[in-house]
Design a protein around this nucleic acid. Structure first.
Lengths: 131, 131
DNA sequence: CCGGATCCTCTGAGATACTG
DNA sequence: CAGTATCTCAGAGGATCCGG
């Protein structure tokens, strides 16, 4: 899911959804927020591979796309919470199906991904890694 | 849908599917192939925005991931056809749902995407573009 | 705890041109 | 018609530092 350009080709749903879901961590962010409200520091802990900056950028985009809301509590220390909007919630079933598909085909997926990414690894080594 | 690195975090379906679907034109390619067999030149015509090289690269990845097969007919002029594998076919319902969601929320999507991408454009101009 | 600003890296993907 | 080899580039995303 990628489709960047707001080009002539925004004429089908597949293109449109690509625009709002585009971003390395977007889907996972939505998934975590959907479980309730979420604070930036919690999100950071759940996705340690992403830097705070990137998470902020993507959260901002999600907000601009009206998929999440950002609530600021004027306290010290600062407190911020993200929630899904009604619109954002409509995406959850979709994300769930995607995740389920991935879970169902886990083994096959791992195998083909490994086979491709680790070209220097032999078949038996792949089996070993997977076991 | 993005997730690139074959990092430690390949532990959920959401990550795994990202690996095989990652690529600007992958989903659309799968969609077109799913309607039957497809020849490279046909695909090129259906996706004129992508160059032949990029399409080839992504087709190769899809093939490596066992989502499509590539059949070569030893004739002159050369003829090649792509088909979905059984595995690839299991993705179609998912892609269909994604597309449907996008279609259902078309107007809202167009609005938020435009609002964000064309920051120099005023609200009324956006309305105008959309009308 | 939160976010913004700066600088940098790296790789997907476009452009072009060439072979069987 | 099909496929490959180079070259190039934008821009997404990472690393860091700083200020509220």
């Amino acid at each position: 899911m990628y489709v960047k350009k707001i080009a002539p080709s925004l004429n089908c749903g597949l293109d449109l959804i690509g625009e709002v879901l585009y971003g390395k961590w977007k889907i996972r962010i939505l998934w975590f927020i959907h479980e309730g409200h979420l604070r930036p520091s919690e999100l950071q802990r759940k996705i340690p591979d992403a830097t705070r900056r990137v998470l902020n950028v993507q959260l901002k985009e999600l907000e601009d796309h009206e998929l999440v809301t950002r609530t600021i509590y004027p306290v010290m220390p600062p407190k911020v919470e993200y929630h899904l909007t009604g619109f954002g919630k409509t995406l959850i079933p979709l994300i769930r199906s995607i995740g389920l598909w991935g879970d169902e085909h886990q083994e096959r997926l791992r195998r083909v991904i490994l086979k491709q990414n680790a070209l220097s690894v032999t078949e038996s080594e792949v089996d070993e890694i997977l076991s």
